[in-house]
Nucleic acid binder design. Sequence first.
DNA 1: AATATCGGTTTTTTT
DNA 2: AACCGATATT
Length: 869
Amino acid sequence: MEPVQQNMGPVLCDPQTLIKDLNPQQSEAVKYYGQALLIGAGAGSGKTRVLTRRIAWLLAHGIWASQILAITFTNKAAAEMRERLAALVGSEAEHMWISTFHSACVRILRRDGDQIGLESGFSIYDTADSERLIKLIGADLNIDLKRYTPRMILGKISDYKNSLISWKDQLKTYAADYRPGQRGYQMGRFDNVEELFAVVYAEYQYRLSQANAVDFDDLIMRTVELLRTCPQASDYYRHRFRYIFVDEYQDTNHAQYVLVRELAGIDSGEQADPHAAGAGKVGPSWITVVGDSDQSIYAFRGADIRNIQDFEEDFPNAKTIMLEQNYRSTQTILDAANAVIAKNENRKPKKLWTALGKGDPIIGYAADNAQQEAGYIASEITRLHTEEGVAYSDMAIMYRANAQSRSLEEAMINANLPYQLVGGTKFYERREVKDAIAYLQAIVNPADDVNMRRILNVPKRGLGARAEGLVAMYADRHGTTFFDGIEHLDRIEGMTGRTAKPLGAFRDLMHELTDFAREHDAKPSEVVAEVLSRSGLLEELQRSEDPQDASRVDNLSQLQSVAAEFEQNTPDATLAGFLETTALVADSDQLPGENEDSGKVTMMTLHTAKGLEYPVVFLTGMEQGTFPHSRAMEDASELSEERRLAYVGITRAKRRLYVTRAAVRAQWGQANEMMPSQFLDEIPEDLIDWKRKEAGMERMRGGWRSGFDDDDEFGGWGDDDDFGTSSFGNSSFGGSSYGAHDRSYGSSSSRGGSSHGSGRSTYGSGSRFSYGSSSYGSGRSGKAGKVTTRHTKPKALDKPKTAPASALSKDNNLDIADFHIGDRITHDQYGLGTIVDTQDKGRNSIITVDFGTDGVKRLMLRVAPIEKL
DNA sequence: AATATCGGTTTTTTT
DNA sequence: AACCGATATT
């Protein structure tokens, strides 16, 4: 929509400006002219910069944006790349495919999936959906799910799919006489576990196809299947994508590797033309992959490090360029990282270096327990902020496993520090949100038995196990779907009036919702509103006495604002399109983008932290058994992966790194003594300045008590014998009510990220969503760190009984005409701001507001909790 | 059919 | 400690 020239500047005219500020290796990578390029990009070596410049360089040399496919692992990385490309080449960036593996595959399958039996409204099952399906299958086949847990079985199936092993092959090899979909089969004794896996795998795929559904791994595997079996499709994509870029290549699994090969047409037999850089040429596409084998941390999920190690053998005429200059960290931090990763065997030696100088030493701290560790971190954050002026958003706390966030969170709340927790239970995995989405899914795809059965009795309508069983039996007998069974409820034997009545009502409800959805397909937010009110989901929660349900209502309205945001940002929005974006979000997608400042300390797992950087990083839980994780300590290759994780963690820090540990840590409610992590020993001693070298208990045991500088301001805390959570009780934290804090705080204030899909915009983000025109949940101050407890008291908020549907989709009656550039407004969360832009889009009008330190936000007038001054 | 209670399991990391 | 599923109770 914008004229190209606006952002383009001289860049396209003068390619030299694309490389003039790069180092020799970077610029070689940008300019490299050839079929296959591996950029070995060490941490902080500017890989995104090189990747985007290389794309811009190609554009400047005559290739078309539409010929480019760039693949990342997270939506956030994709959005960031798109943004940076837009800065280089302007609106040309809109014509490229820049997306995750999974969304690229969805896009392909939506277009061409019918060739392999997928109708375009197909559902995408997440892990929970898949697990439900496995349980259903397990029950039908009489499988001992105690012994073979759904998780275990799904893990196996996932392995098969990541390796492109088809269920047909497995069946042929291990259970040749099983017919998927056959009724009455009982899994009795089997000679071989493989036999059981083969049968369940086949049955699982059968039911997925009956339900017109795919799981995450299917997105990749079935796209490969499509490209391999359908020449029109593979021809189309091979000629379309002449230049393929893959980020984080070390994390690709076998299926993804094959997918890239297929898309590029490497094995098509077409002859490569070495000079075929221009548009419309023949032969395999050019491939550029970027990665760092030292940052491979997803082997447990099927990532195959060999993909990157063997790149030169796999792709003809491949070239490798290493980027080893780090622009992020101090030499001290890099020395630590280099020393740790050097302990891994079988790796190509590589040394990062920096021109930034030595910097401050790494700070070490040995706490008595997790609470004290967290207390130390909170006090350091406070000190850094007040004494040294470090912004909260420039600090991050990282840990191995999500469970560790608990005590850290407590300490942050206690110290009144603003924080933001990334990950944990995802927004879309919350029960109430999943319920609402299950309705949408069932509307879009009535064959989706898993989601249909999920909502059958949600909210409670008197349809229990018996009713479900009757319908399922009928559907099975007649080889039809669960909902089709409901359609014929009067023909079901054993149906009593007491069941038939609510069942009929459910059928009618679904018909009405389906009709409504058909008429409002382009307005997902209205469909959401309709579902929430007509189904009774919202009402049930509003009527509830359970204080947790208040935040559930919050989450549901947030779902609706996410839908509103989606239809705002997406030109041709559909309900199915909305469901896609909800299915494919990652934790890291909720993080604020590069240019946004959340004003909060970020807390996340090391896995989530990959690709990010912070001036100050706290690496916590540096204990044997915590990190490295106990389950990874036995196995050499798993330990190597833990070490790479440590490498990732250390290299996130730009200026200051803290490593902390606890001598005692409670796991499963049990206090355990923890040894210092071996990774601490692997960091050269002189790089760490220990503020507290040993925990109190360790000191007594060790005998020698020499004078280390130990400003032991927390010493008092852990002296009690009971370390567990109760030791926290004497602080301002009422132990018993904590759970409620956690819920309402975490879910609505800090966890419920709203940025999703393409979204770096933040309409819904924390906009506490105007509810029936009175701002809901306003008891919370915008800044985190301060928790306004929502006890059972504010039940008064149950009032808006009046037509919740219209209330949710209505607006707060602000007129865009009343807003002008330069006007001042206040926002419930961000505070005072100045309008810098207005866009009149009728109902969906947008104002862009500068909130100073809180950044510039685009707000949808209709839903934003703002007031004009 | 819905709710209460007990007991066993759980935590690696996620598109 | 928290979550799930199975069992018992209404």
